[in-house]
Nucleic acid binder design. Structure first.
Lengths: 188, 188
DNA sequence: CGCCTAGAAGCAATGAAATTGCGTTAAGGA
DNA sequence: TCCTTAACGCAATTTCATTGCTTCTAGGCG
């Protein structure tokens, strides 16, 4: 009845995992992402390189894992009283975080060491969950609200496309315009 | 920035560049992207590894350059007689190519080895150029047509977002629906 | 409560790749 | 044609990635 643990959840394994993740975060802050290597991270974490290779395969997968943690939202979106206000605030914050140099770096890392796309999917799921909260709140208020998929197509996707493919001017006004559009015709 | 534009345009340098690019293409086809290394590519190209390192910095930047070449459209979009038909056909083909495993691999490579984002910007410019042709043709016909930026936000960005972050079902019907929406409210 | 088993980490050797100094070649301009 | 200098080749060195084998320990069982 106990599920056989594919990864041992507690004890030394957990300690090693946390230690390695912490080492990555520290070294990223100190030396930058370019300077990271597996032996370096392992030394900082107090483990041997082979442990890292066996558990994560290579440096990129490890960085991808850590990046996804950085990309996880820390709080539910604020409740400002209306769907439009909530969505605008969320979109502005999202754009702000994701378009920043560290945000862009995390997105790239998350996409990079991700053979099966599960980490990228996780990132998308984070955004979808946040939007879900906003939309559910709107529904409770009795506001008519669009579909989550629609908000992703019309708000999240354009922002992310520009972040990734069009390094340049991206401001809160753009985010607000996207939200406006997403809400303007949400009743087909 | 990739050192491509400022290298000596003719003679040996050009020959080396072409030779290295060809080697990457061949080895990608023969062994897959995972198996590529700088010494391997250099050997196939008939140059020394140091040449590759000095010119491209590392393997990812080289792969990024080659990937952008793969992503360049080979023909102008077909003229099917109407804006809607043209855009639908273009979007379907775009989705088809980009969502395929090799297409996804090229997109990833183009994004990854791209410190300043110039290669990613080039990819976006390719799509924008193609859309521009379609829209200009529509204008000549007297059709009312949306803005290029609008088409990118509403057609290209959603497709690309799903390709990158949501590995899963993506079909021509989805592309058509996006085109429909982009055109439905674009007649000011 | 202590044994058993298997998964996880450590150690160490090996092969390959990244990196760099230095000499040589040839592209582009005077 | 000559001259300057970017670009290339060669080779040595350092570092990294990879893997067989050993040791340790978490979790289950008698």
């Amino acid at each position: 009845m106990s599920p056989k643990p594919m990864v041992r959840p507690g004890g030394r394994s957990a300690r090693v995992q946390e230690s390695v993740h912490a080492a990555v975060r520290e070294l990223q802050a100190e030396l930058g992402r370019e300077a990271l290597t597996v032996p370096l991270v392992a030394a900082r974490a107090g483990v041997t390189p082979s442990t890292v290779y066996r558990r994560w395969g290579d440096l990129q997968e490890l960085l991808s894992d850590v990046a996804v943690e950085h990309l996880r939202p820390e709080e539910p979106p604020a409740d400002l009283g209306s769907l439009r206000a909530d969505l605008e605030a969320w979109a502005e914050q999202f754009l702000d975080e994701m378009a920043s140099p560290p945000g862009r770096a995390y997105i790239r890392d998350a996409l990079l060491g991700d053979p099966d796309g599960s980490n990228a999917g996780q990132c998308s799921a984070y955004a979808a969950d946040q939007i879900d909260v906003v939309l559910a709140r709107a529904a409770e208020r009795g506001e008519s609200a669009p579909d989550v998929e629609r908000v992703i197509d019309r708000v999240v996707a354009p922002m992310m496309y520009r972040i990734l493919f069009r390094p340049g001017e991206l401001d809160a006004a753009y985010a607000r315009a996207l939200v406006e559009h997403a809400l303007s015709l949400s009743k087909p």
